[in-house]
Design a binder for these strands. Sequence first.
DNA 1: CTTACTAATGCAACTAAGTTGCAATAAGAA
DNA 2: TTCTTATTGCAACTTAGTTGCATTAGTAAG
Lengths: 126, 126
Amino acid sequence: MSISRNTKTVKLLLKLFDKENNALSVVDLVSILSQEMNKTTVYRILQRLEEAGILHSFIDKDGLKRYAKGDQRTSSSGNQITHPHFLCEECGISTCLPLKISTPSIPNYIIKSSEQLYLGQCKDCQ
Amino acid sequence: MSISRNTKTVKLLLKLFDKENNALSVVDLVSILSQEMNKTTVYRILQRLEEAGILHSFIDKDGLKRYAKGDQRTSSSGNQITHPHFLCEECGISTCLPLKISTPSIPNYIIKSSEQLYLGQCKDCQ
DNA sequence: CTTACTAATGCAACTAAGTTGCAATAAGAA
DNA sequence: TTCTTATTGCAACTTAGTTGCATTAGTAAG
């Protein structure tokens, strides 16, 4: 499933994420793109890009939504290819961590997915 | 460190959490206590109870803040006694999970704490 | 018990993230 | 080029959470 129309604004967002390796908050994206498009458009394109499996999102420590490259949707097999995220408490930068998440089994609970956020210092802030 | 004044409103919130084993969102708490106190008061007491180590908080899947019993502050030794949380996608109930969190070591990153949220179905919703 | 200090509260107004309805625009298929 | 409809911009809205300030009420000291 891909995005149905390759509009100017979609291209801009795709280009931005093409060279961006960090997870960006929607607030940052709206600000970065404020000259190019309306904030509503940013929200809506991000939503579509996530549905299309081009981006994935998570909620950071402050409750803000962040988006990063890559797919994290639930597959037809019910599995979810997922990974933890990191947030630097000094500079606020956030990245995907190349780790597998092991889901614990707990009596009485059926765990289907998880969100893991690690907090600390990134390389540049040590 | 404990709360400095044992006011009527503080007592009410402590009593509520005394019999509550789940993590409640601030929105729910404001609603539950709307007859007894102002929403600003709810926010402020929750903040103080967290600082005092009586409650701890986390951000749920929707970016809403939730509070539950117990301490999760960073201790003087720099260690943080922390655990994952569970959120039932059917009924919305949220609980603390009695599991230890193992912090991975990743080159170039210093990890100081983590937030882990497991999503799925609780006992009553299976 | 009374006084005095000040933490805590209520209220109203505010900020900020995210959403919605709708008319106008522009992909892109035919 | 035409036509359909997905997409956009805009304004107005919703909701979580915060702030300033005047008033109230714990509580320690006398």
